[in-house]
Amino acid sequence: MTSRRADLVLAFVVGVPLFSLSVVVAVLSVPGVRAALLVGACLVAHVAVVYRREFWAFFVVAAAFAVQVAVTGLFLVLPSAAVFPLALYSCAAYGRRYPALVVGMVGAGVAAARFATDSSVSAAGLGPDPWLLFGLLAAVMVAAWGLGLYRRTQLAYIELLRERAREAAAQATAAERARIAREMHDVVAHALTVIVAQARGGRFAPARAVEILATVEEAGRSALAEMRAALSVLRTPGLADLPELVERTRGAGLPVRQIVRGTARPLGPGTDLVAYRVVQEALTNTLKHAGPGASSMVLLEWTDDALHIAASDAGGSAAVAAGSGEPGNGLAGMRERVNAVGGVVDIRVEEAGGFVVEARLPYRR
Rank of each mutant, 00 (worst) to 15 (best):
E163H: 09
A197M: 03
V102I: 13
F59L: 12
N329A: 14
R365A: 11
L239Q: 00
R257H: 04
T236K: 08
L242T: 11
S295L: 04
H185D: 02
R277V: 13
L132E: 03
A214S: 12
V260M: 02
G202S: 08
T153I: 12
V71E: 05
S295G: 06
L254M: 13
E358Y: 06
E226R: 15
W302S: 02
A230L: 01
V274A: 07
N329Q: 13
Q68W: 03
R200M: 05
I180N: 09
A41G: 00
S3A: 09
I195Q: 02
T193N: 01
P206Q: 04
Q171M: 10
V44C: 02
A144F: 07
A100G: 03
A100I: 08
R221Q: 11
A310K: 05
G333W: 11
L38V: 07
A113P: 04
L307C: 09
R164W: 10
L78R: 11
R5G: 14
V77L: 12
S80V: 08
A100D: 04
E351N: 10
S324M: 13
R257D: 06
A124Q: 03
V102R: 11
A62V: 15
A66C: 10
R97H: 06
L137P: 00
R235D: 01
A169N: 05
R97V: 14
Y94D: 14
R250M: 07
L192H: 08
L331M: 09
A175T: 15
A322M: 10
V27F: 05
S296W: 06
A340S: 13
G95N: 02
G146H: 05
R151L: 15
P237T: 05
A223D: 07
T263E: 12
A311R: 02
R228Q: 13
A93E: 11
A45D: 08
L283Q: 03
E226W: 14
G73A: 05
M184G: 01
Y94E: 13
A359H: 07
A191C: 05
A322W: 15
G291P: 00
L21V: 10
V77M: 04
R151P: 15
L231I: 09
G323W: 15
K288S: 09
A139Q: 03
S20Q: 01
G293L: 01
A229F: 09
V260G: 05
V246C: 01
F55N: 14
F58R: 10
V47W: 03
P128I: 00
S90A: 11
A63K: 12
A181P: 13
A111E: 02
V194C: 01
A322N: 07
G202I: 14
G95W: 10
E350V: 13
A318T: 08
V216C: 09
A282F: 04
A207R: 14
L224G: 15
L147A: 13
R235V: 12
T72M: 02
V67C: 01
E247N: 05
A108K: 00
T286H: 06
G135R: 00
V61A: 04
L88M: 03
I347R: 14
V25I: 09
G353K: 04
A63L: 15
L361M: 05
R248P: 03
P269D: 14
V320T: 11
A311E: 04
R257N: 06
A311Q: 04
S222M: 15
E176S: 11
W302K: 06
R265L: 08
G202N: 10
V71I: 11
Y150M: 12
A319C: 04
S22F: 06
V102H: 02
L78A: 07
V77Q: 06
A230I: 10
D272S: 04
L299M: 08
